[in-house]
């Protein structure tokens, strides 16, 4: 069995390299064999064991997912396989079922609907109000430095969604089975524990998936 994990970071727009670095550091800290690569093509999506959708602008990523032939199909295919995914900030919006902007209201944009949540975009205000603060996150010991940049928040969550963290009464981190979403940017805080949590999900999923494939033979 191949226990080396292949993690992809969706490289359409945003802080791709920062997520590659954070995930690479996390692998090293866990002594877990693996590689982190940037992905932009359908065949790349099909071969990875986990996908990170980075921070950036959700409208731009949605547009680029829709434009590239076969990309949306391949993402939907791996979602059916329950491939682990993590979205940070804009990435969480792309993974959500519904979203609206705090000032502009409804905005037509492509959403994957993988997380049963409704998002309020720019929930804490514009860049002037962007901030950093310590957070309590379930599954992570001690405070985690949350970097909130024009951050969204989760306004409503379905029954399958586990709430991992709140700030000022707003939901800022969620998990639904293999999928994690955060309002903040764990890739910028210099603390790789959120990425480690995600890599644990990937390792578990890969093990279960490999066992399944073997039992079918």
């Amino acid at each position: 069995m191949n226990d080396e994990l292949l993690i992809g970071v969706l490289a359409l727009q945003g802080d791709v390299e920062e997520n590659i670095k954070a995930a690479t550091y996390a692998l090293a800290e866990m002594n877990q064999k693996g590689k982190v690569i940037s992905v932009r093509y359908p065949d790349e999506i099909m071969k990875i064991d986990g996908l990170i959708i980075p921070g950036g602008e959700s409208t731009v990523m949605g547009l680029l997912i829709a434009i590239k032939h076969g990309l949306l199909d391949s993402i939907n295919k791996v979602l059916q396989k329950r491939l682990p995914m993590m979205g940070t900030c804009a990435g969480m919006i792309v993974l959500a079922k519904q979203s609206y902007d705090r000032v502009i209201g409804n905005k037509k944009q492509l959403l994957l609907g993988a997380l049963d949540i409704e998002i309020e975009r720019n929930s804490f205000g514009r860049q002037y109000d962007s901030f950093e603060s310590n957070l309590e996150i379930s599954g992570i010991e001690n405070d985690f430095r949350g970097i909130f940049i024009r951050a969204p928040s989760v306004i409503a969550a379905g029954p399958q969604v586990q709430i991992l963290s709140k700030f000022e009464g707003k939901i800022v981190a969620v998990q639904q089975e293999n999928i994690i979403g955060t309002s903040f940017h764990p890739e910028l805080s210099g603390d790789n524990r959120m990425h480690k949590l995600f890599i644990e999900l990937i390792a578990k999923w890969k093990k279960a998936n490999t066992n399944n494939a073997n039992s079918k033979k």
């Binding site: 490289a11 359409l12 727009q13 945003g14 802080d15 791709v16 390299e17 920062e18 921070g55 950036g56 602008e57 731009v60 900030c89 804009a90 860049q127 962007s130 970097i147 940049i149 024009r150 940017h185 910028l188």
Partner: peptide
Amino acid sequence: RGFAHMQKHG
């Protein structure tokens, strides 16, 4: 600087 990083590849 983080805000500027979010504009990357855009």
